[in-house]
Amino acid sequence: MGYIANYGYADGSGTWYVIIDSGKCDGCGKCVEACKENVFEVITDDYDDLVAIVKQEKRKSVKYLCNPCISATGKENLPCYLACEKGAIKHSW
């Protein structure tokens, strides 16, 4: 069984989290290649499983990184969603 990881923040303007379901993610790394903003990396987590995470230094800016992408392709066709065959990635907004 995996866990749901919420990376990002909430501020006065809204809730900005990139959400990864470690139970679905198999660490294939396709999202890492698909995202031009380099949001993701694959690591071995605390429970010794390979999993994608949002890089530490990107967590403070997911709103600004993902919004241009969302307006360009629409939420259904984001590069990261299309790349992830497991459907492990979501956004909170």
């Binding site: 069984m1 749901i4 919420n6 923040y9 501020d11 967590r59």
Partner: peptide
């Protein structure tokens, strides 16, 4: 967390 203390969902505020 589950009954073994394993994380099932987490969130932190990374900005502020």
């Amino acid at each position: 967390v589950d009954d073994k203390g394993k994380v099932t969902n987490f969130l932190m505020n990374d900005k502020c």
